[in-house]
Nucleic acid binder design. Sequence first.
DNA 1: TAAATTACGTGATTTCAATCACAAAATAAT
DNA 2: ATTATTTTGTGATTGAAATCACGTAATTTA
Lengths: 210, 210
Amino acid sequence: MREKLEKYFSYVFEKELLDEIVQVGVYKKLRENEVLVDLGDKMKGIPLLLEGAIKIVREDKKGDEILLYFLERGDTCASSFASAISNGKCGIRAIAEKESEIIFLPKEKLDEWLVKYKSWRSFVIDSYNIRLNEMMETIDSLAFMRMDERLYKYLTDKAQIMRETSLNTTHQDIAYDMHTSRVVISRLLKQLENEGKIKLHRNKIEILEF
Amino acid sequence: MREKLEKYFSYVFEKELLDEIVQVGVYKKLRENEVLVDLGDKMKGIPLLLEGAIKIVREDKKGDEILLYFLERGDTCASSFASAISNGKCGIRAIAEKESEIIFLPKEKLDEWLVKYKSWRSFVIDSYNIRLNEMMETIDSLAFMRMDERLYKYLTDKAQIMRETSLNTTHQDIAYDMHTSRVVISRLLKQLENEGKIKLHRNKIEILEF
DNA sequence: TAAATTACGTGATTTCAATCACAAAATAAT
DNA sequence: ATTATTTTGTGATTGAAATCACGTAATTTA
């Protein structure tokens, strides 16, 4: 745990803070598709992502869902932070897109560290900002882009997060993330293939052009 | 300034912090439609909203815009906070929807107060959370709702923020905020009027049902 | 290996919103 | 008061996406 922590956080956190994290943090391995946070959960702390990729999804009453953004190593879940500190509920669901490793930090320390460590304050503020910006990008996509553009952005973004040029996914899964129907996705994927940007296989999409 | 500050923030901030705010804060009155923050601005501090209503808008390269959310008294602009602390640019525009009063807090104090005042930490974290939740609501609207539902939500939300049951606005203005065309808005407004939810006048919309 | 399930392909139709085109009413400017 | 501008109303058309309805291919399961 210490190694991984050093690897991605030694330039982010002060030595003393790293020590504290090692002491109180709980290491956890997530298997693919494991649900880390679910709608309405009360958070007992927040996760630091050491390795892997986590999908953050919003769901409404009717069960419709839409992808908000992905987290990658070095990230934390800003929604959890608020929820943890205020004892409120979390309005999102977090699912591991692939096997991932996290350190779970207990909420009792979160406020204490804000006082003690400048690096922690920066990290928290930065995290919020990154997340606000991601949300704005999502809003941009929904408000300004056509479905084919959104789809291509989805594919390239996800490939980047997953650090792969091929995605193992079905058309239906993409449709869920983008809140549209499988038929629409299938057609647009075929169109992207005809444009030479991707190559389609069963359960797999190769991205040829970024 | 002290009075207004006490009125909305005496239960939020400690006495010592209120004193500091009075010392370093710069009071400013905004006239209707005044631009408080523009795209790409570097923030030298953050605004506390004492009175009035401020619209936060996102704009893309092509000049298309969409409303993100409204701020009301007691609120602050979370986007500015990050931008101020990190010296980064602000991706939004803030416009006074009506005459408003703010206190501008210089960025030098923001981090210092995080260490000194528990109430400041809570306020900042809460602000971020409220904003994240507002953004999620905006995403919900865009992803899950039809235009007529979005429009009705827009009208009732705005009426609430403005503390009026009538809105002084044109169909075109609404169209800009919702990133659609005037024709679409006119038709849907007429439809809402036929349903008895609103009453239309020139430059004015009465909301009959909340 | 046969049957069931899952994933993908594609035509046809419908719906919601965007766009075009124009007219009428209200208000502001000269 | 006449003209110009702004705001609103509405028919007709187009376009993107959603939905319906199948068919086929690849995999799994029995």
